[in-house]
Write a protein that binds this DNA or RNA. Sequence first.
DNA 1: TACGTTCTGTACTAAGCAGTACATATTTAG
DNA 2: CTAAATATGTACTGCTTAGTACAGAACGTA
Lengths: 208, 208
Amino acid sequence: MQAASATACAGSAPRGRPREFDPDEALASALRVFWQKGYDGASMAELTEAMGITKPSLYACFGNKEALFRKALDLYERDKLCYVRSALEEPTARLVAERMLNGALATHCGDSDPQGCLGVISTMPCGIEAETIRADVIARRRSSEQAMIARFKQARDEGDLPDHVDPEGLANYLTTVLQGLSVKATSGTDRESLKRIVQTALACWPCA
Amino acid sequence: MQAASATACAGSAPRGRPREFDPDEALASALRVFWQKGYDGASMAELTEAMGITKPSLYACFGNKEALFRKALDLYERDKLCYVRSALEEPTARLVAERMLNGALATHCGDSDPQGCLGVISTMPCGIEAETIRADVIARRRSSEQAMIARFKQARDEGDLPDHVDPEGLANYLTTVLQGLSVKATSGTDRESLKRIVQTALACWPCA
DNA sequence: TACGTTCTGTACTAAGCAGTACATATTTAG
DNA sequence: CTAAATATGTACTGCTTAGTACAGAACGTA
């Protein structure tokens, strides 16, 4: 049981034949495939081709398909969903919503990455094998939603939201809009339409 | 090329061995499976078992998996999405939204049918085989969205919406919320939470 | 009774899937 | 130079998938 990280412990000299690919790059390529096709839709053949490695290399480095997906999901949350964290630090509830919606727009409707949200795609029923992953993604999302609820409760305590507004309802409503945007993005709706949807949603925001 | 419908042309006497199952019932069972598992997630084995027939019977009666799905989708739109039509006939834009949201709640979060919207589930990427179906479902949805845009334009012309509101943006925003609700329902969010989301969305509706 | 027609059930085909065995190549340690 | 260790590529396993061939069963008609 050695704990040799991908980015090497400097001093440790690897003993055998050196790896001919960069695991981080390969994982990023895998992420793109999962993001585009979903867990079940991405075959090991497609994954290995996109990653530029063979199946035995993949299995030796990442375990199996499910483990690979989980690592890709970690990368996704760390690299692509970072706007969620910073959005929650905005000073007002409205700014939180604004930043969340625009962050989603940038991340899920850009032209350098696949359209839509990997999380939403992964919670849709598909194969049987994906069930454990579905449950995992749903759990991760739930914790993220709890954070938003807490943020909006704080906002109401700070007098930042009208008293008649239910913070939990508002938080869940906002994630609903975000998930709806993701569905539309995945379906190929163009970015201009999505921008107008975000504008409309913000125009409707309580206490604008 | 005879056009013998499922519900028989009365006069025509069927010549061979009579069918031992009801195609309408079988189709309804198939719909439930597709609704629960998605197109790719539903295997022919699961379908035939739920429908109570064998594979040759299925292929003889419905063609193939894709044709079966399309017939199930027709049934779904006719039986389960009928609230969309009637919602558009409501006298005000707000009542349209109210009826759409409550209709979605009843249809996608009931306890007699699977959770979520078959249309949304079917537009998520999964297998390669589902691509043509995805495109088809997206096209169907687009025409439905056009109808709502037209309805909201009419509402603005009738002075039923504030002048500063963009009818197309509002229609697309509403479908976004509806699709988001479907994602949440599919993920197992309980109906009470969804009701509160609908309430929040309606509280935000322009010119309440 | 015999025939044509249609449905049913068993048993199959071919393809795609995730995952792996094994021989070979490339490295460090001694 | 040899041995241990790790990575690689080919070729495979076993399983599941959609779809079908074929024999037999049940009907109307003659």
